[in-house]
């Protein structure tokens, strides 16, 4: 591994900006594949616009 030569090791942490459906999915995938994830969300809670939707196509599931 060449990376040991570098002064600073490659970080094993990542950051996701935005806690909507896309941000949540990215964060989950990375956490589940061995990386520490910081999620930064501007509002008090995550969920984004999808949480505002009533129901979604095609099954008309509620979007919670």
């Amino acid at each position: 591994m060449n990376h040991t030569q570098q002064s600073e090791p490659i970080q094993g942490a990542v950051m996701v900006i935005g806690g909507g459906i896309a941000g949540i999915q990215s964060a989950l995938d990375m956490a589940n594949s061995g990386f520490y994830v910081y999620m930064v969300e501007k509002s008090p809670g995550i969920g984004g616009v999808m949480a505002q939707l009533d129901k979604t196509f095609p099954t008309n599931d509620c979007s919670m």
Binding site: M1, H3, P9, I10, Q11, G12, A13, V14, A22, Q25, S26, A27, D29, M30, A31, S33, G34, F35, Y36
Partner: peptide, 18 residues
């Protein structure tokens, strides 16, 4: 896809900070 692309360069450090 972004999760895959963003962790690709960090693969050597997988499981080091969890």
């Amino acid at each position: 896809a972004a999760a895959c692309a963003a962790t690709q360069p960090l693969a050597v450090s997988r499981n080091t900070q969890t």
